[in-house]
Design a protein around this nucleic acid. Structure first.
Lengths: 145, 145
DNA sequence: TATATTTAAGACAAACTTGTCCCAAAATAA
DNA sequence: TTATTTTGGGACAAGTTTGTCTTAAATATA
């Protein structure tokens, strides 16, 4: 079951890498992240570019440059990242792909999918990068295979 | 959010079309389904072929031929269809794509994704084609855009 | 038998996602 | 200024999913 595209997965892993670093005062280079997370450097660059363009990240060129969060990690939620990388309508999908599926014209599985979607959306909307960063540090969780 | 491939979506819609037909005694032609559901005929043919090869459907060639369920609709569950068309490991996915993610080596979002996956799997495992067929008939639900 | 109908099966093409490569632009440091 | 480092951005290639086309095989009917 592939819920998120590679772009979202890589983007999230990179942001989690940033927030789980000890030193929060420096830019993190994309090269470092791509190597630590085993992600294609150029692909990751483009993903992070999108996040920078949309104001979620700040980038800085040149030696010791890199990427940094533009907001405190407490104020960035998974849903912010996913909506940028997957599209604003990410949580509006119909499981059977019927256009206009909703309360008025539901598909046969709308009732239960609606509930699942809402639960997922809520989880994404309330889970911050800070929360996961703490979790990663405390439990020494990995971010790559 | 694309949880199911087109193959699964089309396969499910076709099966729901079959079970929501009044006359259950005849084969339903793929051509009819492809037209009623606005699905490419050849693509649908291949999808249903997979289901036939895996014993979920029965096919019959020649005039008045077509496709029929090989089991009563009460005994076919969404999970049966999806596991054939998406793969047996469909419900084992890690949201962040980390290999071996599980209780021993969880990814940072494993705890909540585990719950969501289980709820989805349960819903797929307990929803039968018969149940949805009844729902479709009673509420005149559509199966195509 | 001959013809029409329908699924089976494979080759192929189009579209989308993912990944690679190259060079430009910005910043640092010597 | 010059060289080096790093992101920006576009072209392009590879891979996967989705869709199309052609022919074969099975069945029914006349």
């Amino acid at each position: 079951m592939k819920v998120l595209s590679k772009a979202s997965v890589y983007g999230l892993r990179a942001l989690l890498y940033i927030v789980s670093k000890k030193d929060k005062s420096e830019y993190v280079s994309i090269r470092e992240m791509s190597e630590e997370l085993s992600i294609s450097f150029h692909f990751l660059t483009k993903i992070l570019q999108s996040l920078t363009q949309r104001g979620l990240l700040e980038s800085y060129r040149g030696p010791n440059g890199g990427i940094a969060l533009k907001l405190p990690a407490e104020e960035i939620f998974l849903i912010d990242v996913v909506k940028i990388l997957e599209g604003e309508n990410f949580f509006d999908s119909c499981l059977l792909g019927l256009p206009g599926c909703g309360e008025f014209e539901p598909c046969p599985v709308h009732d239960f999918w609606k509930v699942t979607k809402a639960a997922l959306q809520d989880e994404f909307a309330t889970t911050s990068l800070a929360e996961l960063g703490t979790k990663i540090s405390e439990n020494r969780l990995r971010l790559s295979g």
